[in-house]
Amino acid sequence: MIPASFDYRRAASADEAIALLTENGDDAKLLAGGHSLLPLMKLRLARPSVLIDISRLADLSYIRADGDQIAIGALTRHHDVEVSELLAREVPLLPAAAGQVGDPQIRHRGTIGGSLAHGDPASDLPAVVLALGGSMVVRGPGGERSIPATEFFAGFMETALAADEVLTEIRVPRLEGAGWSFQKFNRRAHDWAIVGVAAVRRGAGSGANGGGAGVALVNMASTPVRATAVEEALAGGASATEAAAHAADGLDPPSDINATPEFRRHLAQVLVRRALEEAGA
């Protein structure tokens, strides 16, 4: 299978990519690693008439400390996140999850920004950035703005990115010794999570990053979603087991070949409990 025809434009800078997006509107898509977009294009589920290749923008591939946060360029590959010593030290949840995305070949091409901008509720990294309380830095014709992860995932494979905006950076707080866990349940190696859980547990009121827990779920709704009922139960003093019972509260998980909604609710409760225990509830 090959994709339908398109015009290929290679952007030499983020600003040029924005100009090309502005010029071409909804008919254009950005191409980073291509590991979410190209499969859709081959199946004709996506059919952009203009493909704007940003994968060569080396200045959008970096991982660096910035105050009490870590800044990650949107074009940083999963492999680079996986092996980053800075992240292993400061935000170990992120490389642990990035190392479970797809397989080594996919991690050599796929990017963190691509994964987040794709907004697939079944992918791992959106839940991680949600649990961490991260934010997205996006740039458009009018300049730069920051979108909290909690406001970024707008609908099924839809984000708060405007048609003429480029995601340039992901910012996550340093974990400062907080407990964390990433649970991914699937039946076969390399598969998407049937359900996944990213969890962070900070001591009450700890430091600049705020206290409390962050818990987010993979493949439990039409968007990557925070398990707010679990977070509230923990804040109210519930144990891991008690809090985990609320894992699927208010959620309408999808039904597919791998699982019924009922099975997904069960999985979410079990995996949240495991995650909270591993994170040190």
Partner: peptide, 27 residues
């Protein structure tokens, strides 16, 4: 498989394994 799953099309791109069914030649 032609769908990024089976790995049969794996080649090295600048020394690293990639699935050549999910990369455009222009990339």
């Amino acid at each position: 498989c032609d769908t990024t799953s089976c790995g049969t099309c794996t080649v090295l791109l600048d020394g690293e394994s990639v699935k050549s069914c999910t990369i455009l030649a222009v990339q």
